[in-house]
Amino acid sequence: MEFLQQVANALTQGAIYALIALGYTLVYGVLRLINFAHGDVYMLGAFFGLFISRWTGALTLSQNNKSVPLWMTAVVFVGAMIGSALVGMVIERFAYRPLRTAPRLTALITAIGVSLLLEYGGQMAFSPDPQPFAALIAERNIIDTPSFSLSLVQLFIVGAALLLMLSLNFLIQKTKIGRAMRAVSIDRAAAQLMGIPTDRIIAFTFALGSGLAAAAGVLNSIYQPSIDPLMGVQVGLRAFVAAVLGGIGNIYGAVLGGLLMAFAETATVAVGLSRYRDAVAFAILILVLLVRPAGILGRNVAEKV
């Protein structure tokens, strides 16, 4: 049962990593750029969630140990996702788009700059101190035995993440804009020649990835209800590793990588080596990349002659 407990915890954490990893992989797909500010967009999502909780009164309810109505929770989620989506589009428009034809290294350094701007700008704007988050989902256990417990929060996280992933999959595989995203990621110039407004598709991709990161930010804050402007650094790094591990550019790889990261982390902590969990994560990454340089589900594309 101890094992089952660990599995449930790993699934919860993995769902959150997967949502963030999807953003890295989506943006990489259309731009071949690692958006290092993505973890900070996740952080902003959590803060947007906090502000909306304050504004709707959900935070006060939660602080008085009253349950938050479902509509408030929904408003917090949708609001945070829209807020981060807009931030993602602004970042793309002003930081990355002017560098579309610049060398890749320039864009990469810019990404690191945007990340630092959000982290330290966040400390100025929100104060560097951790702030309590609202209990948007009632804190009670659905299964509660001495050896195994599953909380409503955990179920909600996995359920919400699953719903978002299935929606994303539908969007990418079955809709016109999803087809355009795939076309842009395969061959941007050819997509342009077909009349696809590639700049708009790239902006939309940033919005989509940032929205998913915000959802992850709110979900994580319900799970671990304390947020601060540097909360995206560690989690962002792990999700980035997850995306590379699964095969960057591949959405199924991002989900797989997120789950693998969480399971590896949970296992490391379970055997009492919690201090080494990041070391273990990177060791796994290095080992996988030695065998499969494009990641587990990544396609090894030879440069065309």
């Binding site: 087809r179 355009a180 795939r182 076309a183 395969i186 077909m194 009349g195 696809i196």
Partner: peptide, 26 residues
């Protein structure tokens, strides 16, 4: 006005039907 690019530049991992659909994007 549309161009058939040199070297075809079809979207290789997408299906034939999806490629045709993208031609009608605009």
């Amino acid at each position: 006005l549309i161009q058939v690019p040199e070297g075809r530049r079809i979207f290789g991992t997408m299906t034939v039907a999806e490629n045709l659909d993208l031609g009608a994007y605009a």
